[in-house]
Design a protein around this nucleic acid. Structure first.
Lengths: 348, 348
DNA sequence: AAGCGGTGATGAAACGATTCATCGACCTGA
DNA sequence: TCAGGTCGATGAATCGTTTCATCACCGCTT
């Protein structure tokens, strides 16, 4: 029965066990753990020795129950596979790490049901707060979360709701920068590739139209190519649709709502022997690291990704730690156009 | 003081409150929550109504404390920004999601201190188990975790330790596939780019040497280019060192320990006007989605990424749920060479 | 009518840490 | 010598849930 033996793990040691072993009270053990300075060095070292010997590890569930607040916070993003979000997550992790908190990383995949399920789970966990790139920031579930007193900070999304902080990048401006750049290079027939479900995408689209208006052009001349998701695969598909138009009507430049789409479009065009930027210019959004390494280095609108995560986490911790003096705020960063080869062809 | 009002959130409702409101005992409320079928429909609906009205949300910390096991598991990876790991994470999430578990996603960044800090945290959380791509699978901290009865499954790493499951891909074979392919294309001077700290990289390197031996070549002819990390930036740096050699001695093909390095090398070479694959052929590892979208589509060694995550999570849940009948096992998948343009030049 | 089995509800104990009012020991100054 | 004060240790109460032994009640049999 030696195979069984390995599983005969006796229950983990508790503060009580440590107390007995060290010959002190449980209160003292707790003090050694939480306010070491108020306990005599002799006693302290005796307790620490007992902890060592028993291999004691504090049970966070019990601590949490008693203290009323836990050591985790939730981060809900639209797509883990998108480097934009992993960079944001790195920023979040940087900030929470120094505060000794752990992150429960959740992937809504743009699916409201999944988002709701994760919010349920996070609320049951009594997380310190939730950082979320919501599918819909007026979602009923999200409102309920706030009503229950859970701190919520919107990520990459300006809150339309006054009772939550938000940290985002000016998507309207980002859209403008991209299109202004293309107009300056002589483009007049431009396509916009992206879905219409997300606020971010809608804002980038409006910014794009604004740039057309500013240049005295017809905003409706922006050819809209709708995609179900913002992925490389959706981009390849979009390229096919763009090429479906006769050459006369076809756009000479394409602005994509994010870099994954742009990479997909680039693949799709290349596969059909359409050259970028000579035949069609291309601009992406996010400036993920892979944009620079693409087949044709991608012009893109850069967002301060890690900064976004850090700021959001900082705001959340502030709100969670002292709610009385917290004032909700909407932080908005400015994006920046990074020009690379994919848009460098000037039309005559 | 209306600004203060918003924060006067009364404490969340507990089972006790629900019980009072519904005119039943706490035990009954608990039963409605956990085994709804053993309670009379009338009572049940009364309790459910009370839950609705009070907005009751179960406190998982208390549940966890009483039941002895929680609803989370830890996932520790080397680099969140590497798409390989996010794909693995997706696989993990797929499996845990159906089991109603949440994942605490931790990023060790290849730093043993960070890894240890996260393991401490996870143990205090009393997670159901830990999935980890360890920096060193013989780490003292990791061994202690196992001794304390925490289930540990190695990810992307064959366990050298018999008392843990592992799920990995045959890196030795992967290295062989890559080099065999290059040899068949006429290459004789080949460089290997990667760090030596990780087991995975060492295995790929050994596989590469094996392929040389199999072809009757001198294994030491493999030029080793060491990098501190496996990132795009490190790859760019490696390219510079490769080009530092005189053309006669310079490798005609480069095999990188992962795709991020390969993309970096590709950028570094291109920037110096060295053509891929004409001047230097390039092979990466992992076949991340961006490999196909690279400046020159990248030949790479594919690993079943999501499958890796799913399998590891399944194994972990099995072990955690019924330890008595669990037998540790080492699952090893086979990698697959995906040939693309970056290696398509045949030397005469 | 008494006995019996079965169904559902009950409520106290338990999980493991923290908190806090209390107590004891020791020191100081009168 | 004693009152007063300080510092450190104590241990019972507490957090919110689950569990389980117990109980009340109802219908049915004998």
């Amino acid at each position: 029965m030696e195979a069984r033996d390995r599983h005969l793990t006796r229950p983990a040691a508790s503060v009580r066990d440590v107390a007995i072993r060290a010959g002190v009270s449980v209160g003292t053990v707790s003090n050694v753990l939480n306010k070491p300075d108020i306990v005599t060095p002799t006693t302290r070292s005796r307790v620490l020795a007992a902890i060592q010997e028993l291999g004691f590890v504090r049970n966070d569930a019990a601590r949490h129950l008693r203290r009323g607040r836990g050591r985790t916070l939730g981060l809900v993003v639209l797509d883990v596979a998108n480097p934009f979000f992993t960079d944001v997550a790195k920023g979040v992790e940087y900030t929470t790490g120094r505060a000794g908190l752990a992150v429960i990383f959740c992937n809504s995949d743009g699916d409201l049901a999944k988002e709701n399920a994760y919010l349920d789970l996070l609320e049951e966990q009594r997380v310190r707060g939730v950082l979320i790139t919501p599918i819909d920031d007026a979602s009923e579930r999200l409102q309920r979360l706030r009503d229950h007193g859970v701190c919520v900070v919107m990520l990459d999304r300006t809150s339309t709701n006054a009772d939550a902080c938000s940290v985002s990048v000016d998507d309207h401006l980002g859209g403008q920068l991209a299109i202004r750049h293309l107009i300056e290079n002589g483009h007049r027939r431009i396509a916009f590739v992206g879905g219409s479900a997300l606020q971010q995408v809608r804002d980038r689209h409006r910014g794009a139209q604004q740039a057309l208006v500013d240049a005295g052009l017809e905003p409706r001349s922006l050819q809209r190519v709708d995609t179900p998701t913002l992925t490389v695969a959706a981009g390849r598909d979009a390229a096919a649709r763009i090429l479906g138009l006769p050459r006369q009507a076809r756009a000479t430049a394409v602005f994509c709502a994010n870099d994954l789409l742009a990479l997909g479009v680039l693949q799709g065009l290349t596969r059909q022997r359409v050259r970028v930027p000579d035949d069609i210019a291309l601009v992406g959004y996010d400036d993920i690291d892979f944009a620079a390494a693409a087949a044709v280095p991608l012009t893109s609108v850069r967002q301060p990704r890690q900064r976004l995560g850090q700021t959001a986490a900082t705001l959340l911790l502030e709100e969670a730690d002292k709610p009385e003096e917290h004032q909700h705020q909407q932080v908005v960063f400015d994006p920046e156009l990074v020009v690379r080869e994919s848009s460098l062809h000037r039309l005559p």
